[in-house]
Design a protein around this nucleic acid. Structure first.
Lengths: 233, 233
DNA sequence: ACAAAAGTGTTTCCCGTACACCCATGT
DNA sequence: ACATGGGTGTACGGGAAACACTTTTGT
């Protein structure tokens, strides 16, 4: 029988975040170099202990504020719990992992011991952090296709080809600019701003600038199959 | 600076599971009546404290074994962490919630204080358990369309119309038997067993029996859009 | 014969893709 | 003029939904 009075086996709880950004046509993650002994010098995810008065999301936002300007974090979502008893040496720590997204146009001031790393070319990481990063990448990849998360990776204003670079880098393969525009337009996500970007060195037609109308994640393609019957009016 | 030595603010961690089953054309969840004081008498999710030597999935499987035959649990997956500081009265408890699925043909012996309840007509529940159940339901609904989770709700052998009842109950609206068969066949999930079911009281053609070939969850419709280019050979 | 339930065929629609073609600008 | 990159139009294919039609049983 379980009881809420019998408080057996308390343990520590940490929150970690894989903060992702697309830059230089690559998907990157924010890591910091450990300054303490277990796995000293290895790269690890930002985060830390859960405090008594905060829930996990509040906690990760607070802790990330030390690394990046919190307003630049356009999206945060729970990833999974990592709880293998030996996932860190010493006393047991259960971790709640998050996925965070930062638009590609911001270059946040990060502390000295912190740096961006290519997700597809990770350095040696501490503990199970590599696994967490890869899970974050996979989550992002699937959500790009059926939600509007793209807004959290894109600058406020962008050309279609810039957006194409972002989607391509995140997904790991080239997407067609034409169809990207068509799909996002059909879903009502793309708003023309009226502005245009100057054409590049070799000439070329100046590109129109767009922005994502909506803030906040939304499912845009909820049911691939077994759709509910269209609501009669 | 975070440290793995400075073990500040330990707390308790519990694991909970929303175990779902379709029966009598309704989606049901396994709840048990609390015998202890905080929220005594209210219905709550099975689960309990995480032990020092187990990860969360091992823990929930162990604890569910007290309620249902573990072999009947066809699918288990993490749902989310619930961590509001005041989610339970008294000392703080963080919960990792799971979704569990049981096929519709098993009628497990459940302890006396345990019973199935309609998900769409829940009784008063303890703590935040209602929220957890609804989240489990929503997760199941979306996964039915792009994965093969259906296998975890269906009996080993079934007719298409029986399967239709299951999908309809889980999704909350009628699905077309014809298209259900076509979609699942196209995805290579349905295997004809060769057997047929006897026809009902009013006659009617006897139905062919099918089974899901695969055990274990698989994504069957990975990318709605932005598909990777077909791999050249 | 008739009703009932299962299964099949056909049609339609929509979405995503591929690709050819047109447009605007710099040199 | 011509190269360069942006944008549009069109045609194709596939998957899913809707629904009529056929098949097989019981009464």
């Amino acid at each position: 029988m379980r009881s809420h009075i019998n408080s057996s086996s308390p343990l520590a709880h940490e929150v970690l975040a894989a903060v992702l950004q697309v830059r230089y046509a690559t998907l990157r993650v924010l890591l910091w170099r450990r300054a303490l002994d277990p796995h000293l010098g290895r790269w690890s995810l930002p985060g830390g202990r859960l405090r008594p008065d905060e829930d996990v999301e509040t906690s990760i936002r607070r802790q990330l504020a030390e690394k990046v300007d919190i307003r630049q974090l356009k999206h945060v979502e729970q990833l999974a719990v990592f709880s293998a008893p030996d996932r860190v040496p010493g006393p047991r720590v259960v971790a709640t992992a998050f996925l965070g997204l930062v638009p590609s146009d911001v270059d946040p001031e990060v502390p000295e011991d912190t740096a961006w790393h290519e997700v597809d070319n990770l350095p040696r990481t501490a503990f199970d952090h590599r696994e967490i990063v890869l899970k974050a990448r996979d989550r992002l990849r699937s959500k790009l296709s059926y939600t509007n998360v793209g807004f959290a990776l894109a600058p406020h204003e962008f050309t279609i080809s810039a957006l194409r670079e972002i989607y391509s880098a995140a997904l790991g393969y080239k997407v067609d600019a034409t169809n990207l525009q068509r799909v996002l337009s059909r879903r009502g996500l793309l708003e023309p701003t009226g502005h245009t970007a100057p054409s590049g060195r070799g000439g070329g037609r100046p590109a129109a600038l767009f922005s994502f109308g909506c803030e906040g994640i939304r499912v845009t393609d909820p049911f691939a199959v077994f759709r509910p019957p269209p609501s009669r009016r």
